[in-house]
């Protein structure tokens, strides 16, 4: 078994979406994450706040942000436990963030460093 980090970017709903539409969208997330949990593939996950700070460079400059464009905004992540990349990508395929053209899922394998 390998672990993969799935990073969600962008927004899956219109800012003007109706309550009914938002509830329907939320239901899709429940189904998606709930399904992974049921198959014992879900390890953990969390949403991220829109605002944040960035510390950069040798001078350790602290700036507000990231003020990324909507579609680049990292909104959350989940960690899953599956056989291989193909399976991880297949799972990412069903992510509700992809209901919007601005949404994307980055799939990254967690590299396990063996004990010496």
């Amino acid at each position: 078994m390998k672990q993969f980090l799935l990073l969600f970017r962008g927004r899956d709903t219109d800012p003007q979406a109706s309550p009914e539409e938002m509830q329907a969208q939320m239901q899709k997330w429940f189904t998606w994450i709930g399904g992974l949990a049921e198959e014992k593939k879900y390890v953990t996950g969390n949403p991220l706040e829109d605002s944040g700070k960035t510390v950069s460079g040798t001078r350790k400059v602290v700036t507000d942000g990231p003020f990324a464009e909507g579609k680049e905004m990292l909104g959350g992540y989940i960690l899953i436990k599956v056989e291989n990349y193909d399976e991880a990508v297949a799972i990412a395929n069903n992510c509700p963030i992809l209901d919007s053209d601005t949404g994307s899922v980055e799939v990254r394998e967690v590299r396990v460093i063996p004990d010496p």
Partner: peptide, 16 residues
């Protein structure tokens, strides 16, 4: 209200 729903959508997806 719209704002509250947007926040719910983000947070509840992981945990109701």
């Amino acid at each position: 209200v719209q704002d509250a729903f947007a926040q719910a959508l983000k947070e509840w997806s992981f945990k109701i």
